[in-house]
Structure formats: structure tokens, C-alpha cells
Design a protein around this nucleic acid. Sequence first.
DNA 1: CCCGGCGCCTGAGGGC
DNA 2: TGCCCTCAGGCGCCGG
Length: 321
Amino acid sequence: MPELPEVETIRRGLQTRIVGKTIADIDVRFPKTFIGDKLKVESYKVKSVERRAKVLAICMNNSYNLLFHLKMTGQLIWHSPNEISKSEFLIPASPAGGSKQIPNPKTKNPNKFSNFAGGHPDHNWHANLPNNTTAVIFTFDDNSRLYFNDLRKFGWCKVLTDEQLQKIFTEEYGPEPLDISRGKPSEKFNVEYLMQQAARFPNRKVKQFLMDQGIIAGIGNIYADESLFDAKISPLRKAKDITKTEWQKIMQSVKKILETAIKYGGTTDSDYVNVDGEKGGMQNHLKVYRKAGQKCPRCGGIIIRIVLGGRGTHYCPICQQ
DNA sequence: CCCGGCGCCTGAGGGC
DNA sequence: TGCCCTCAGGCGCCGG
């Protein structure tokens, strides 16, 4: 599930690949996924790629933007014209006139066409695309393509004006926890801010507090659990019971965990890949997320899993107080 | 204000 | 081998 580090990794990948290119065509395969008028952006040039919280914006040179939310299983994978010719060689185009048939090599031809042309399951650079999860295909003027895949179909892409985008960026999300990207400056993410927000929601549990996008931008289930483990704070603590010293520690832990995750290219739990279709590496450095029953790497206690706000929550009941 | 539950989706995994 | 059930989870929404 792409959180701040995963979306930031994708942003950096797209930045170097699509800025300056013109969107020649948008092929919408899941109508519910694409909201708005594609004609507002077709034939216009990409000016920049920005991130705010967990959303990613492709900004065009005509004051329109494409805003993406990847939700659980969204992917944005870029293919060079060279990769596309390979892909079209592997998957013949649909028969003339029949454009709705989507090739599904996994089920129809499990052995003949591997999803991993290189034969290495960890590196699907040459994954056959589009596949049956491909929601939208963007084709650029140099014939490179951007595939928006989404297995669970929770994600979306919206066409927005600059004004609409700025309104969302400023009103829906709290401060960015890291001083990176073109996100909102992070000066606001400090102890005074956290304590002021804690006073607004005194009885909320600290994990729910950290995951509220209106309070802090970009933290999801994985990094909330990992940050609280690093800070030695129980996810069940109420906001009003957390001391200034503890908020300081939480703030530092959030920054440290998110920076580490970006360094490793994000966490691949199930579907996350970068724009080249490569998995992240942070899953090998997680301490508590999805590790119920295992020993706490800090105190040797046993990590437990509870449900908090409907979400799986993992922590060490011994050293997280 | 806080919490639980549902809906949106589909593949994985367990039980039989 | 296969069918059925449950579950995961970001997030909006609704009701208690």
C-alpha cells in the first residue's frame, strides 16, 4: 500500500522520465478509475510531477493536472518505446475491431509467456503490459507509455485545474513530515504543532492520530506501526497522555523511518513497484509490521497484532509503553 | 468527539 | 483438485 515513501519514489522516477513530454493519448480501460475530461490534458506537455501526502500530481503546461491516488494496489509503471515493442511482440494486439479483449497471460498462458522476461521474479522490468489490472494507459509523443495498474480498483486519477489542485493540497492535508520534494514545507511539523493538534483530539489513540492525513501527510499503516515502535510508544496511548518529550521522540521517529524507507525505495508488501516495475527493499528492514508472534528485536518480547480502527496493528507490548 | 461497521475490489489462503 | 468462506486495507460515509 503506497504511503509517502512509495509515492515519493514513484514521483522521482516519473520526474526524470516524463517531464517535457506531451501526452499524445489516454486509453481508459476502467472507466470508474478516470474521473474528468481527458481532452483537457491530451496534446499538452508535462510541466512537473509533484507529491503531497500519498497523492501524486502530473502537472501540465496548460493549468490542468492529473491527480493520482494509488490506494492499496495502484502501480504507475513506465515503459520506453523499446520495452513497448517487446511487449507487443509477446502479446499480439487484439483482433481488429475487438478492442475490449484484455490479454491475461497469467491464466491463459501460464508457461508460454512469463511475466518476467529476464527470468528473475524480483525484477519484472519487462512485465507484459497492459494486463488485466491496467486501468489507464498514457502514451507520450515519443511513444513511451505510463501504465496505471490497479488490481483492487480503489485507486483513481482525476483531471483538476491548478486551483482545484492547490485547494486539495492546502486544505485536505496536514504538514509534510519531511523537508523534501515540492510538498508543503515541513517547518510546521514540529512539537508545538503536534501538541496543539493533540489538544484538538485529546482522546484519539496515537496511531489513529498519526494516520490522519489532515494532521500529518503521508503516514499509513506500515509506517505508523514502525514509527511508534521506534519511538517506544504504544499505539493505544491517547493523544492527551503523551508528553512533550514523547512527541519529540515520535516526531524524530517518523522522520527517521520515512527517510529510511525512501532510501530503500519503499516497502513492497504485495503490489508496490517503482516506475521501472522493481520492488522496494524496506520490507527487509521492518521491525514489527506483520511480525506478530516473532521476537521483538529490541527487548526479546513477543510482537502482537491487534485491530485498531479496523486496521491490523503490530507492536511490542513490553517495550512500547 | 470517538468508534465500529459497511462498501468499494480481488487474490490469497484456510477448511473441508 | 476445487469450492466456499474470510480476510486485507485507504478512506469516505453513516449511525450509535
